[in-house]
Design a binder for these strands. Structure first.
Length: 906
RNA sequence: GGGCAGUUAGCUCAGCGGUAGAGCGUCUCCUUUACACGGAGAGGGUCGGGGGUUCGAUCCCCUCACUGCCCACCA
């Protein structure tokens, strides 16, 4: 006998272990089995499972389990990411907290050892948490981005790209993170709006030059008044960069400054003589129209400087302090300190003309949170523009499809405007760049040191000494190879042959650029085929008010606590049901409780089945059932199988969950089991046996359909229900997905049960409205029944008596006095509840119902009276309206007759 | 400044060319031998505003408004 409730806490670990031990997580070895492959978006190896992971991985597991049951060679390949900056940051913070020396004092090797120690310590956390979620990953294939195989893939890709001129070293401005002291890519920069100002500085003209500057204008904007100036005004949001100015730019067509192009200013504080140049970049409508140029510390100025041949003077250290290229009193000062001091000095010396307070966008490092500095350094770049073209084409042609489709626009927009990808990082935790520097700026890019030396010796002789590049690669460089490096590439493994390209990638929109686009580029370039057939973009989980969950807001919901409290299946069902496509998921605990209740409902339905000896019968063929309710539930089951299968194929997770919920609760529990009770408690042994077998069969189908979403409770019931019936030949996880013939849908049974459900519903509704107490059992007289209705009344007498709580069901010539009418198709039922009738209330009820029909009739008449409608609408729509009209008119007539009788009595 | 998405019942969301739906919440009733994590019933919406296409629009087109997100080097 089943326990009173399902106990997830004891069941979950036991079943997970059993699944894993059985080898169920490994893909089928059947050579004919079509592969279904998902590579996991690798979480940070030292991270822990948050609610977003719970959603993302639930969906992946639902797909994996579904396709596994459908007989595919289903592989869900797990793994973790070394997450360069994030992990290095954590370990550095730990060192600091423990009072240890910093990483630079520790030295590279010792520090990296520390990180590996930390990985060993906490690296299992997230994978164990994935197990708690029920994730059916093939753990025997688990990978880590820094393990040997993946590192080999990284080296191979780097070298190959270099030799194909798709990867190169360049000196240009990069986004420099002064806290981590590394370059970062454009994507790792976040623009944040901050309070700032434009400081207007007057730079004195050199060599005694003066010019006439307009100060008043007429209505047409023509200058009418001028003053003589011996300075030019420039505006800046970053005063400290003036120490690196090497020019002032004005627009070539700007009348005000035309005469100044080619002249010089004397840079205040520094005293440097710098030229005034003409460049389109200078916008006459902005500020004074003249802009100071700091080529080494501004992306735009870098361009201007190049065009005008200006020197680029780097004035900052890697920590963003002023270096020794500036006057002595500023050397070593922090950039923000210097800013204040320079503004103060400008004011003092009289060349600060104006301070204009403003808000503007300032770049910040997404990890460090500090202001990013454009910084002139040598870095490695990937020619993303070239690699992007086939990646664009793959989505344009539909080789890879995004779901929902609209994300393709986002993908296109980014790839069409892509910039070179800076892939080198001045960090220690990551893949060391396979490049060696030789004499005279020679660079040797090879997979191994030996090869690099071999190449170098060929060029420089035997004594050549090489220095390996100190830098590591952007974490996303290795992540970009994930769909094939995890399968064993560059080795020619069986897995690569069988499982590439993968089927579906399930991930969040926030990493379409970081990850998806780059996997597309690398996958196509190295494998010749896009890495996925489908990219399913899942929503973002927010709190119940719609706010993003964050530790600082204190609104995070820990999925593991939710699993502890409400069970894994409830959490999974919630994730599946809420994974609609177009919006964020607002998660509330109440919602999860609702789905926990759903699990309990299923459990109790199984208990009921067990108590009533609804045991699976070997060789039972649903095609042979005779009882209308059994024919009906058979058809409903067929429809549900089709619906859920279609939804999971798409995938449309919410639709699958919705179909399952409705079928289990509103069809199977609310109606089928209730309808089955009189038979199960009755004397007709044949009907009883048939109903028992049908109920057990339907429950079995339910367990299968529900398994991908709620694996634990279904597997447990699969096991428990076998205790009383034939033994199972497999665990549910490996059971075959149901496929049922459409012929099992019986239109007649459907109509009959529909009639029954409708009649019971109407009687219940009247009873509630008239306040008929549950203990009262009125009689039902049916007037004007046709042959079919008569037969149904006989067949379902017991059901009507029980479900509608009636004393008797009989045919009659006329409705008894004081009865209340209900429409039963062509017939009229009369419910004998005279004792409970409030005449006024019943009149009101009838009047309201008649009014409803009248409205319907008018509306439909109008439609059918429209010649255009009759001429242009589809035939079945017209027919439907005719039927609707006839039904409404018949119902109206019956109710009016009853109202008339009531009026006669009253 | 550019782009994307959303606006449907008190709340959260489905529906997306032919009678407006679900869950939760609300109200009424019910300890009926699977389940009170339950059962029965009820109330509640001019589908953001305005145009247009159509026999017919919540659904398609245009436009406006508001909300959220992404991208962008503007001194």
């Amino acid at each position: 006998m089943l326990d009173k409730t399902f106990d997830p806490k004891s069941v979950e670990p036991r079943l997970y272990a059993a699944w894993e031990a059985s080898g169920a997580f490994k893909p089928s070895e059947d050579p004919n089995a079509e592969p279904f492959v998902i590579v996991i978006p690798p979480p940070n190896v030292t991270g822990s499972l948050h609610i977003g992971h719970a959603l993302n991985n639930t969906l992946q597991d639902v797909l994996t389990r579904f396709h596994r049951m459908r007989g595919k060679a289903a592989l869900w390949l797990p793994g973790t990411d070394h997450a360069g900056i994030a992990t290095q940051m954590v370990v550095e913070r730990q060192l600091a907290a423990a009072g240890n020396i910093g990483r630079r004092d520790l030295g590279r090797e010792a520090f990296v050892d520390k990180v590996w120690e930390w990985k060993a310590e906490s690296g299992g956390t997230i994978t164990n948490q994935l197990r708690r979620l029920g994730a059916s990953c093939d753990w025997s294939r688990e990978r880590f981005t820094l393990d040997e195989g993946l590192s080999a893939a990284v080296r191979k890709v780097f070298v190959q790209l270099y030799k194909q001129n798709l990867l190169y070293r360049d000196k240009r401005l990069v986004n420099w993170d002064p806290q981590f002291q590394t370059a970062i890519s454009d994507l790792e920069v976040e623009q944040k709006e901050v309070d700032g100002a434009y400081w207007h500085f007057a730079y004195p003209l050199a060599d005694g030059v003066t010019y006439q500057h307009p100060i008043a204008f007429d209505d047409e904007g023509k200058a009418v008044e001028f003053e003589t100036r011996d300075y030019i005004v420039v505006a800046t949001t970053r005063p400290e960069t003036m120490l690196g100015d090497t020019g002032v730019a004005v627009h070539p067509d700007d009348e005000r400054y035309k005469g100044l192009v080619g002249k010089f200013v004397t840079l205040p504080i520094v005293g440097r003589r710098i030229p005034i140049v003409a460049d389109d970049y200078a916008d006459p409508t902005k500020g004074s129209g003249a802009v100071k140029i700091t080529p080494a510390h501004d992306f735009n100025d870098f361009g201007v400087g190049k065009r005008a041949g200006l020197e680029a003077i780097n004035i900052l250290t890697p920590e963003a302090k002023l270096n020794d290229s500036v006057p002595a009193e500023y050397v070593g000062k922090d950039r923000f300190v210097a800013r204040k001091e320079i503004v103060a000095r400008a004011e003092e010396e009289g060349w600060l003309k104006e301070i204009e307070k403003t808000k503007h966008m300032v770049p910040h490092g997404d990890r460090s949170g500090v202001v990013i500095e454009p910084f002139l350094t040598d870095q490695w770049y990937v020619d993303a523009k070239t690699l992007a073209q086939p990646a664009l084409k793959a989505v344009e042609t539909g080789e890879t499809v995004f779901e929902p489709r609209h994300w393709e626009k986002t993908y296109f927009e980014w790839l069409r405007n892509i910039e070179p990808w800076c892939v080198s990082r001045q960090l220690w935790w990551g893949h060391r760049i396979p490049a060696w520097f030789g004499p005279d700026g020679a660079i040797f890019v090879e997979e191994t040191e030996e090869e690099a030396y071999a190449a170098a010796r060929a060029q420089f002789g035997a004594d050549v000494v090489l220095n390996r590049d100190e830098d590591v690669l952007d974490t996303w460089f290795s992540s970009a190879l994930w769909p094939f490096s995890t399968l064993g590439w560059p080795e020619k493994t069986a897995d690569v042959a069988k499982f590439y390209p993968t089927s579906t990638l399930v991930t969040g929109f926030d990493i379409i650029f970081f990850w998806v686009a780059r996997m597309m580029m690398m996958g196509i370039h190295f494998m010749g085929e896009a890495p996925f057939k489908q990219v399913f973009i899942n929503a973002l989980v927010r709190d119940e008010k719609g706010a993003k969950m964050s530790k600082s807001k204190g609104n995070v919901m820990d999925p593991l606590i939710l699993i502890d409290e409400l069970g894994c299946d409830a959490v999974r069902f919630t994730m599946t049901a809420m994974s609609g496509q177009a919006r964020d998921i607002k998660l509330s605990k109440q919602r999860i409780e609702g789905y926990r209740n759903f699990g309990t409902k299923l459990w109790n339905a199984s208990r009921f089945a067990q108590m009533n000896e609804c045991v699976r019968v070997e060789g039972f063929d649903p095609a042979t059932v005779q009882q209308p309710i059994n024919k009906w539930i058979r058809g409903e089951t067929v429809k549900t199988v089709a619906e859920v299968t279609k939804a999971l194929e798409a995938p449309a997770f919410d639709e699958a969950a919705g179909a399952l919920y409705r079928f289990v609760w509103n069809v199977f529990c609310d109606w089928y089991l209730e309808l089955a009770k009189p038979i199960l408690n009755g004397e007709d042994e044949a009907a009883k046996a048939e109903t028992r077998a049908t109920a057990a069969w339907a429950l079995d189908v339910i367990l299968k359909l529900l398994h991908p979403v709620m694996p634990f409770i279904t597997e447990e019931l699969w096991d428990k229900t076998a205790e009383f019936g034939p033994a199972r030949d497999t665990m549910l996880i490996k059971a075959e997905w149901p496929e049922l013939p459409a012929e099992w849908i019986d239109a007649e049974a459907e109509a009959e049960i529909g009639w029954l459900v409708g009649t019971v519903g109407e009687i219940r509704s009247i009873r509630a409205e008239m306040n008929v107490p549950p203990s009262a059992k009125p009689g039902l007289s049916v007037v004007g029944a046709g042959a079919e209705t008569k037969a149904r009344l006989v067949r379902h007498r017991d059901l009507l008596l029980t479900l509608a709580r009636l004393d008797s069901v009989s045919e009659a010539e006329a409705a008894p006095t004081g009865s209340v009418p209900i429409v039963m198709g062509e017939a009229t039922g009369a419910l004998a509840i005279a004792d409970f009738i409030d005449l006024a209330a019943e009149k009101a009820r009838l009047t309201k119902e008649i009014a409803g029909h009248v409205g319907e009739i008018e509306k439909t008449n109008k439609k059918l009276g429209n010649p255009d409608f009759l001429a242009r609408a589809k035939e079945e729509v017209i027919e439907e309206n005719r039927e609707r009209l006839a039904d409404a008119e018949a119902a109206k007539a019956k109710l009016e007759a009853a109202l008339g009788r009531l009026a006669a009595v009253g």
